[in-house]
Design a protein around this nucleic acid. Structure first.
Length: 890
RNA sequence: GGGCGGUUAGCUCAGUGGUUAGAGCGCAUGCUUCACACGCAUGAGGUCGCAGGUUCAAGUCCUGCACCGCCCACCA
């Protein structure tokens, strides 16, 4: 059978893209409903349309592709559901900036034309991330691609809102929320990012009135003094015992405000007196409400001071802070200003400082759903990997607060609520109702807000499958199986999907959540484009020419469950590229030796040599190990097992031994066919096992090897073959390796020229002697020796030789003039010393009654046999040294 | 303030309580050996963060501490 040869070098750039197009064209990525097969579903964590592929995507998506490709090869109907997120604030910001460059504003454009502009932007740039995913080789079912604003998905979001609204789980209210003055929108608690910042703590004196004493408060935000309505102290604070009930004068505005007592005040902080600003601080808001205090507001939605702020009106909040501070100082009311380090809330999208701000918003009462989700997790219906994430997610669910779901944006799912102009009642409906259901009025206007982007992605696992319709897709593919994600969206997305899945479909959306490590720079910093610390996966794949496979393996092989960070560098990709090259060259070697080979004819057992049976045994170990590691989400171990097998066993040892065997097996002989079959089958199998991680290279190699079927992608996952495992052979090979390494080491130590063949005499006891004798030719080639001679253990050493005494084996290299007996004596003495040190420790243990009594018998037995082996070796070494002494000095 | 993770070779990391702790990279030395110099071979390099404890036996289990990183939390 003819075999195709491989080009001498592997160029991933030439291979990867055409191969992806071919897979796509063959339809391998598509998972149709097929009740005859068991489905396997992973939902792609939908990237933003504005996004560009970064290392975070590359790592989590590579892991998903590993799982999907592996399960597909196992025969599962594997669906990897792809899509992109409209990303409300992020996308709106991008287009707003574009408008600004044209001198346009949102207001000037108007809502409808703005949304139209965003769609145009999406049509132009929205596919970039999708193309990048394809470039990485990800085998998503693109026929099922979903954009969160596609009409069917939009309708699903509407339906979810309306159901929750009708169930009383969504409501509107005037609350203090996190307000982003830059984005001009509310955001949820989870979207606030706290940044430790150097701030100042101002100690400001409030004058007592009617002869009462002054009170000094401490504040970070002097400008909010303008909105103060009280000063609060702890009821048990003796310093202020007489003060409660009196009044003080708020500086600048000269407002008389009461001093009140409240347990929420921490007497240990600052002066123990807290100014109360219900309009601009969450705690103050609560305290104010409980004490029936008024709420004053001095900031507008842009974070500028309102006319209520008198002469500060129009100033930005930070300018106002400086201005008010300066004025207070001029008035002599500032006692001191301390540097103060504190956490400042910022917007996770635009990084502007968040304002606690009172406004009308929509909220989702997630507590009941969170309770169900927590219950499901506690029952083990969703398992997190690593397990430690379970507690973290449960803590979030157990302490959940209402979710602010409305956003004052234009880009997104518009809230399906219609307000009646006559009676003011809301009506929930996907399209404008003809009449108000409450009063029959016909003047209805839709709520201007859109929904939090995370609200729409929370229903991703079923809205992509046709929900709320009872589609065959939904019935067949829901619930799914695994979610792979970064820890940063466990609450924002993962927890909410579990809640919504249970709420709407009565079942969790997936059973396993693998939390991937965060990709960091090599010095432990966050990878960020703006900081210039990022590594661009596509630049690595194409720009540097490492190929997508190298990026994938480099990442996947470092995804262990132990760590939550993954320190990453280009060097790691380059190292993996070397692995690709190694595989490529091994494949070239195999193909060069397959002439006349028919892979359909299995070899007779008798025709398999020692090396063949050994590598088949090793491969039989490898297959179930890789499978088990993937089942346990131990990606690093799966990769290491493959790397060590392919490079350390197949290439380093088997191929070298096969060269010896091939030289002795005439073309056309059954013996040669058996070697060829081993070369081929083990390499093919290794390619299959490696395929999920390095799909392109493995497919390319596999296509050139003899094979059944049209693509490795859909070839069967290798089955474990326990019959091929031969522990005796493994042990025999281990001895061979030690012998070869020992001879090489001695050669290097004696500086024997590499090309020179040296005589070697090996002494061993039966049955090892016979086994090694059978391996004599391998030893000769691998260690560059002349024909190896054998003798019985303990037999006489050849004259003028260097010797190594191993367990049960002695190696003597008679090198005549090259051997300096004095040096050899020194060398042996050194080994003897090491051996004695070890023996001493061992004997100490064996004389310890506690050890003998308490350690398990097998441990004691093992130490005994080690000791006896060391004793024998010591004896032999001493004998050899003694014999050297007889050697006449030259 | 609470929680989580990390601390093992120069770097990145493995390491079911049981030999004298391993890998890759880097380093040193040698090698154009008929698949591969993106390679082969050999070698150097470690009081496993610190202090206690448990155990016959601790890198591994427990306690405390230190440092690095992350998450949560309305102390102004």
């Amino acid at each position: 059978m003819a075999t195709k040869t491989l080009p001498p070098t592997y160029d991933p750039r030439a291979v990867e893209m055409p191969r992806y197009a071919w897979w796509l064209q063959r339809g391998y990525f598509h998972a149709p409903v097929d009740p005859a097969r068991e489905p396997y579903v992973i939902m792609l964590p939908l990237p933003n349309v504005t996004g560009e592929l970064h290392m975070g995507h590359a790592s989590t998506f590579s892991l998903q592709d590993v799982l999907i490709r592996w399960r597909r090869m196992q025969g599962r109907n594997a669906l990897w559901q792809p899509g992109t997120d409209h990303a409300g604030i992020a996308t709106q910001n991008v287009v707003e900036r574009e408008l600004a460059r044209e001198g346009l504003t949102l207001e000037a454009l108007g809502r409808e034309r703005f949304v139209q502009r965003v769609w145009e932007w999406k049509e132009r740039y929205g596919h970039i991330i999708v193309e990048q995913l394809k470039r990485m080789g990800f085998s998503c079912d693109w026929d099922r691609y979903v954009f969160t604003l596609d009409p069917p998905y939009y309708d699903a979001v509407m339906e979810a809102f309306i159901r929750l609204f009708n169930q009383g789980l969504i409501y509107r209210g005037k609350r203090m929320v996190n307000w982003c003055p830059r984005d001009q929108s509310a955001i949820s608690d989870l979207e606030v990012e706290y940044v430790e910042t150097d701030a100042q703590l101002w100690y400001v004196r409030y004058r007592g009135v009617d002869g009462g004493p002054d009170v000094t408060i401490a504040t970070q935000r002097p400008e909010t003094i303008l909105a103060d309505v009280a000063v609060a102290v702890h009821p048990d604070d003796p310093r202020y015992a007489g003060l409660v009930g009196r009044e003080v004068l708020v500086p600048i505005v000269n407002r008389r405000v009461p001093v009140i007592a409240d347990r929420r005040v921490d007497p240990a902080f600052g002066t123990g007196a807290l100014k109360i600003t219900p309009g601009h601080d969450p705690t103050d808001h609560e305290i104010g409400a409980d004490h029936g205090l008024p709420t004053l507001v001095i900031l507008d939605p842009r974070g500028r001071l309102t006319p209520e702020a008198g002469r500060y009106a129009g100033l930005d909040r930070f300018e106002a802070r400086r201005a008010v501070g300066a004025d207070l100082q001029a008035m002599g009311l500032v006692e001191r200003v301390e540097p103060y380090r504190t956490n400042i809330g910022t917007c996770d999208r635009c990084h502007a400082v968040i304002e606690p701000y009172i406004s009308d918003q929509w909220f989702c009462d997630v507590a009941p759903m969170a309770a169900r989700a927590a219950e499901a997790i506690r029952a083990g219906r969703v398992r997190f990997h690593h397990e430690r994430w379970t507690r973290i997610v449960l803590h979030f669910l157990d302490h959940i607060r209402p979710w602010t779901i409305s956003r004052q944006l234009w880009w997104g799912h518009r809230i399906p609520i219609w307000w009646c102009e006559r009676c003011g009642q809301p009506a929930a409906a996907t399209t404008r109702p003809a009449r108000c259901p409450a009063c029959g009025g016909d003047g209805l206007t839709q709520d201007p807000d859109v929904l939090d982007t995370w609200f729409s992605s929370a229903i991703w696992p079923f809205a992509t499958l046709g929900w709320p319709r009872e589609t065959p897709d939904l019935r067949y593919f829901y619930p799914g199986h695994v979610l792979v994600t970064a820890n940063e969206i466990l609450f924002l997305w993962v927890a909410r999907m579990i809640m919504m899945g249970l709420h709407f479909l009565d079942d969790v959306p997936f059973a396993d959540v693998y939390v991937a490590p965060t990709v960091m720079t090599i010095d432990g910093r966050r990878m960020s484009k703006s900081l210039g610390t990022g590594i661009d996966p596509l630049e690595m794949a194409d720009g540097r020419g490492y190929g997508a496979d190298a990026v994938r393996f480099a990442l996947v092989s470092r995804c262990s469950q132990a760590q939550q960070d993954l320190r990453f560098s280009e060097k790691m990709i380059a190292d993996t590229r070397n692995f690709s090259t190694k595989i490529w060259n091994a494949a070239r070697f195999v193909l060069l030796n397959l002439e006349g080979f028919d892979h359909r004819r299995p070899p007779a057992a008798a025709d398999l040599g020692l090396a063949d049976r050994w590598i088949r045994s090793r491969y039989a170990h490898l297959t179930p190990a890789v499978t088990a590691h993937l089942e346990a989400f131990e990606f690093d171990k799966a990769c290491r097992a493959l790397y060590d097998f392919i490079w350390g066993e197949y290439c380093d040892w088997y191929l070298e031994m096969a060269k010896v065997d091939l030289a002795a097996a005439p073309p056309g002989s059954p013996r040669r066919a058996a070697i060829q079959h081993t070369l081929w089958s083990v390499l093919s199998g290794a390619m299959a096992l490696l395929h999920p991680v390095m799909p392109f290279l493995t497919e390319e190699v596999w296509q050139h090897l003899p094979h059944e079927g049209e693509s490795l992608m859909v070839a069967p996952w290798p089955a474990a073959d326990p019959a091929a495992i031969d522990p005796a052979l493994d042990a025999q090979m281990a001895v061979l390796m030690t012998v070869v390494r020992t001879i090489r080491s001695l050669r290097a130590e004696l500086a024997v020229p590499p090309a020179r063949r040296i005589p070697v005499h090996i002494r061993a006891a039966a049955p090892l002697a016979g086994q090694l004798e059978a391996l004599g030719e391998y030893i000769a080639v691998l260690a560059r020796t002349e024909a190896v001679t054998f003798g019985p253990l303990g037999g006489p050493a050849p004259a003028r030789s260097v010797t190594a005494v191993l367990s049960g084996v002695e190696i003597a290299i008679p090198l005549g003039g090259l051997v300096d007996p004095a040096k050899e004596r020194q060398r042996l003495a050194r080994t003897l010393r090491q051996l004695e040190d070890e023996l001493k420790g061992l004997q100490r243990r064996l004389e310890d009654a506690d050890f003998l009594q308490r350690a398990p018998a097998e441990v004691v037995e093992r130490e005994r046999s080690r000791a006896s082996d060391l004793l024998t070796r010591r004896q032999r070494l001493e004998a050899i040294v003694a014999a050297l002494g007889d050697d006449p000095p030259r």
